[in-house]
Computed example of a mutant assay.
Amino acid sequence: MKICIIYHSETGNTRHIAQHIASVTTDSRLVEVTDRKRYFALTRFLMQCNAARSEGKTEIEPSHLDVREYDLLVFGSPVWAFKPTPAIHTMIDVLDNCGKKRAVAFVTCGGRPGQSEEIFRKWIEGRGMIFAGFIAVNQKDIEDDSVNADLVAFVNAAGPKLE
């Protein structure tokens, strides 16, 4: 099974989880999405949370991605204002050849994931992908081996079923 792990990370927590998934799954690719929009240092967090709350989009790098060759897409995002980030929203919106692909999502958060599952489902299904699950990882559990093992099992179970 070929897996593409597409994530956005600001503090490194989501990156850590994405890298862990990639390190223990065969035939996977990591794609980090970065927000290219310029913000003033003092207002960066407030502007980004406001954009997340309104399910906004932003300028990203890479600006598009062809996922034709993958069997499973894994999306990762921190939680801002109880929702995934504008950067991951934009990436989902600009994917090429994603229709009918199975996709799962994970978030990292300091508290509760809020509406992240529902929002990811809406974005994924809105692009014609099959929403195959969601999982939230609290920042205090990022280094927990059993949580990481559960996450990897979740990803592996979400892949296409062989007939």
Rank of each mutant, 00 (worst) to 15 (best):
C4R: 03
I6T: 10
Y7H: 10
E10T: 08
E10N: 06
T14L: 14
R15Q: 15
R15S: 14
H16G: 01
I21D: 11
S23F: 07
T25R: 00
T26S: 12
D27T: 02
S28F: 00
V33H: 03
D35M: 08
K37E: 15
Y39L: 08
F40A: 07
A41L: 07
T43W: 11
F45H: 15
L46W: 15
L46C: 08
M47G: 01
C49T: 12
A51W: 00
E55H: 06
E61Y: 10
E61N: 14
S63K: 15
S63F: 11
H64E: 15
L65Y: 07
D66M: 07
V67T: 07
V67N: 04
R68V: 06
R68F: 06
L72M: 01
S77A: 10
P78N: 06
V79H: 08
P84A: 05
H89F: 11
T90S: 15
M91K: 03
M91R: 06
I92N: 03
I92L: 12
I92K: 05
V94T: 15
N97I: 04
C98H: 09
G99Y: 10
K101D: 12
R102W: 06
V104W: 03
T108W: 04
C109L: 07
C109A: 13
G110W: 10
G110P: 13
P113D: 08
S116M: 01
I119E: 07
F120C: 05
R127T: 02
M129F: 02
F131A: 11
A132F: 01
A132Q: 04
A136N: 03
N138C: 13
Q139V: 13
Q139P: 00
S146R: 04
A149G: 07
A149I: 04
F154V: 05
N156A: 02
K161H: 09
K161Q: 12
E163W: 06
